[in-house]
Each structure stands twice: as structure tokens, then as C-alpha cells.
Design a protein around this nucleic acid. Structure first.
Length: 436
RNA sequence: GGCCCUAUCGUCUAACGGUUAGGACAUCGGCUUUUCAAGCCGGUAAUCCGGGUUCGAUUCCCGGUGGGGUCACCA
């Protein structure tokens, strides 16, 4: 492992992880893995009021689901002693000071610790945006802790990144304006300055930063909706980043292989659920039959008939769609007997009952000629297709399909033949002929 | 409002001074085993505006405008 590269993902457990929030984690992870470095997760739980265990669990669960594995996990609250030690040193050195003031909000302290701001111009290099400078004078002497035992965000970040050996701070662009403040603290502490990379934010359809309040779904909700983790990961990674070439479907290891900070976009990207759905379908198609049925089983507890798997996978955009179709009985014709009306049988045939009856009988005769062991979709088609074409396909194929499936919408008639087998196919056609 | 970031089809993006401005999603047509999907083929659709620099700007510089972020005893 290359310890010259250490990245971290530092979420605060104040909400569920969504597509926008997890992205910093994804990019930091991809960057670390690409460079054979270390990736750590740090839960920033210094705000006791707002931090909730359930959110921490949601964050960890989301990362695990996406396959983003960390090399170490820290909780910022566990570092209280270290924070206090450094806070006291800063105060002793008069780089920070205790400030008595009137609490300007509920629960505010009468005494807080302020950083003595030298008010210099801070310039840093961002891997994505290039050189950025700020005049920090306008920041005044900002508060870095409510008390020695209650450090605030900026102070905690700097100390922990330092102690954990973080070399590359990869986070959302909303932190650009926090960076000069943190650099000031680093300099006061004598801590090294890490490399910075500020990622473009992800916008919702309203054009503003994606947030739970604006209806952004939690990562775990996508799991519940039947999305594949590899699809969510792939889509999120390609939002604001693009490798060379026109390939779009990437596995996790391919993303790791291809990832570089150089090709990260500078401007924000809008989240498009429709495209996510497309990625999901593409990843669904990549699954083997056994893998697909395993995922479906894990998702809904349903064990699908093995014969249906290729159909289900081809016709569904999500695991939920597949399990819903199953639950709605869309493929019930496979095992159950079918029942349908004469109207449906003739509905799309564009021919009268007598003609349809003849066509069905002829089709049955032709299918009978196919060898039992060669009763595939291809052979079934070969047997009746020329006849159907001669008669007008609709007058043969539509009733054949309804006779076999009993449904207005279904897979094509030849696929149905193969699925049902010769005996059942002929049986059902005979049943339909009876009705006419 | 101050400060910071940013600007190619509706959306995600390619182009690193010279292209008929390419691809994907979506959309619209057509084809198919005249159903539903899928699939295949094709169409519509973009360089924010104004100045420079240059033989030549999507590309470099400046200004404007638009968008976003941030200005807590939250992170």
C-alpha cells in the first residue's frame, strides 16, 4: 500500500446518505484505490445535538452496499482528548483565545474559543480548479471551539486529517470557501497542508444542490427500488467525471483502473434519474442467469422459475419491476392454465373467427411436425412463419400468442412455444380452437 | 449583497487553436417474431453575450450576463 496517498470520506451523521453526498466518498475511494493508497472513513459527530446513530448506520450501510470498502473507520468524537490538548496549546501560544461574549443564540456559550486570524491572503492549489486565493481578513477571528471539550468543524477536520495522515482532501465544492480557514489553522498548528480537490456538486432538477429536503432519495432507497449497486456507482461516478473514450458502462474495478482527478469536471452536473435507470438496465443485462436470480431472491424473496430468468432480465429495468411483474401474474401462463375471452383472441387478428380457427388449426399441425426435442423458439418460428406470412401474420400470430399466454401483452408466440413445450402448446391451441 | 467557483444539444459529456462540433440518455420517426418491452436504423437538437490575441477561436485573455456555492457557538 502506498502511504503517500491517503484519502478520506468525512460525512456527518445528520442525515441519510444520498447520491450527492456519497459522491465525495466515491471519488476519494476511486482515487485511493487507483493509486494503491489508503481510504478512510471518518464520522464527523462532534455536533452532539444533530448527530444520530441511525444516520451513521445509514451511511455505513450505503457505502457497504455500493462496495466502497474503507481501510479504517474513525469517529471524531473519539478524539476529544487530542482536540483539547491542541486547543490548549493554541491558547497558550496565543494563536487562539478565550472570548467572553453574550450568547447570540439559544444554547450559546458565554465563553468560546476564537482563532486569532492573522488576516493574510491564502492561496492554495486545487487539483480540479487550479489556483484559488482568498483574503482571509474578512473572516475575522472565527470560533474554533465552543469550549476545550467541544471543538467545532474546522478545528476537528484539520487535527484529524493531520493525525490520520490524510494527504489528499477530496470533497464537495461547497467546501472551497472553508479551505482557507482550515489552512490558517494548519499553519497555526504546524500541520502539513494536504492536496485539495474540490468536486463539482450534483444538482437536483430544481438547479440547486441535491439535498434530502428537496426530495433527493437516500442511497438505501434506490436499493429498495430494485437498483443494482453497480449501476448507482457507475452513474454517480460518470456524473462530473469521464474517462477517455466513449465507453459508459464500467464495473467497479474498471472505474478504479480508469479514474484520474484530471478528468473531473469543473462545473456542477444535474442528476437525471432516467439515465440512472438506463445504467441499471445495462448492468442488469450483464448479470448471468444465476446471478440475476440470486439478486432477485435477495431483493424480494421470490424464487423465479429458471426458464423465466432471461425474459425477466431482458424486460425489466429494475429488480422491483421484475418481482412486480411476477407478483402481478404476468408470467402465470407458464404453470397455470390460461383463460381468455373470444374477443381477445380475435382482437388483433384482423380476420374473422372462421379464418382464425383455420389458421390456428394449421399452425398446430405445423408445430406438431417439429421434433419434441427440437421444440425451440427458432424451430417453432421456422415451422409456422412462412404460413403466417402467407395468411397475413396478424391473423396467425396474434391468436397463437393469445392462445398460449391468455394475455393481451406477452412475449412473442415462438418464445412462448419454447417456454411451454410441445405438449402444452398443442393443448392450448386446441383449447382456443374449441372457442371458435 | 461581499467573497469564491463556473458556462458545448433538454440532461451527462467529447474536443486540450484548424472537426460537416462527436457520443450517451431523453425525445421524434422507421424496421422487426403487425401485442408489450427489448433490439436495430435514422431525424431534431448545443459552443451565453461583447471585446480582444491570432492567419484561424468551443478552446487563450478581459468584461458582462446567467448558474452554483459560501458567508453559524452546523458540518
Amino acid at each position: 500500500m502506498n502511504l503517500d496517498i491517503v484519502t478520506r470520506f468525512a460525512p456527518s451523521p445528520t442525515g441519510n446518505l444520498n447520491i450527492g453526498g456519497v459522491r465525495a466518498g466515491i471519488f476519494a475511494y476511486l482515487f485511493a484505490r487507483h493509486n494503491k493508497g489508503r481510504f478512510i472513513v471518518r464520522i464527523e459527530d462532534t455536533d452532539r445535538e444533530r448527530s444520530k446513530k441511525e444516520f451513521e448506520e445509514n451511511i455505513l450501510e450505503s457505502l457497504a452496499w455500493l462496495g466502497i470498502e474503507h481501510d479504517a473507520l474513525y469517529r471524531q468524537s473519539a478524539h476529544a482528548a487530542r482536540h483539547e490538548e491542541l486547543l490548549r496549546i493554541l491558547v497558550e501560544q496565543e494563536k487562539a483565545y478565550l472570548s467572553r461574549e453574550a450568547p447570540n443564540e439559544e444554547g450559546g456559550r458565554e465563553e468560546v474559543i476564537r482563532f486569532r486570524n492573522p488576516g493574510t491572503v491564502i492561496t492554495f492549489t486545487d487539483a480540479i480548479h487550479g489556483e484559488i486565493s482568498f483574503d482571509t481578513a474578512e473572516l475575522k477571528d472565527f470560533v474554533i471551539a465552543k469550549s476545550f471539550s467541544e471543538p467545532l468543524f474546522h478545528f476537528g477536520v484539520v487535527v484529524d486529517d493531520w493525525d490520520e495522515g490524510v494527504t489528499h482532501v477530496i470533497r464537495g465544492e461547497d467546501h472551497i470557501s472553508n479551505t482557507p480557514r482550515q489552512i490558517l489553522i494548519q499553519e497555526a498548528l504546524g500541520a502539513p497542508r494536504p492536496h485539495y480537490a474540490h468536486l463539482p456538486l450534483i444538482m437536483g432538477s430544481d438547479g440547486a444542490k441535491l439535498s434530502k429536503r428537496k426530495g433527493a432519495k437516500a442511497i438505501t432507497e434506490y436499493r429498495g427500488l430494485g437498483y443494482l449497486p453497480e449501476a448507482v456507482l457507475n452513474y454517480d461516478a460518470l456524473l462530473g467525471w469521464h474517462p477517455e473514450g466513449e465507453k459508459e458502462i464500467f464495473s467497479r474495478s474498471e472505474l478504479i483502473e480508469a479514474f484520474t482527478l484530471e478528468r473531473v469536471q469543473k462545473s456542477p452536473a444535474t442528476f437525471d434519474e432516467t439515465k440512472l435507470l438506463w445504467f441499471n438496465r445495462e448492468h442488469l443485462k450483464l448479470l448471468s442467469d444465476t446471478e440475476f436470480s440470486k439478486r432477485l431472491r435477495d431483493f424480494s424473496g421470490v424464487e423465479a422459475d429458471a426458464r423465466l430468468i432471461p425474459l425477466l432480465r431482458e424486460r425489466s429495468q429494475t429488480l422491483k419491476e421484475a418481482s412486480d411483474a411476477l407478483a402481478a401474474g404476468e408470467y402465470g401462463f407458464l404453470c397455470d392454465s390460461v383463460s381468455f375471452s373470444k374477443e381477445l383472441l380475435l382482437k388483433g387478428a384482423k380476420a374473422d373467427a372462421e379464418t382464425v380457427k383455420n389458421n390456428l388449426q394449421k399452425a398446430a399441425q405445423l408445430l406438431k411436425g417439429v421434433a419434441d426435442e427440437a421444440f425451440t423458439a427458432q424451430e417453432a418460428k421456422r415451422a409456422v412463419f412462412d404460413y403466417a406470412t402467407g395468411q397475413g401474420r396478424a391473423s396467425v400470430l396474434w391468436p397463437l400468442r393469445v392462445a398460449l399466454s391468455g394475455r393481451e401483452k406477452s412475449p412473442d408466440p415462438f418464445t412462448l412455444c419454447a417456454l411451454l413445450g410441445k405438449e402444452k402448446t398443442l393443448e392450448r391451441i386446441a383449447g382456443a380452437v374449441q372457442m371458435l
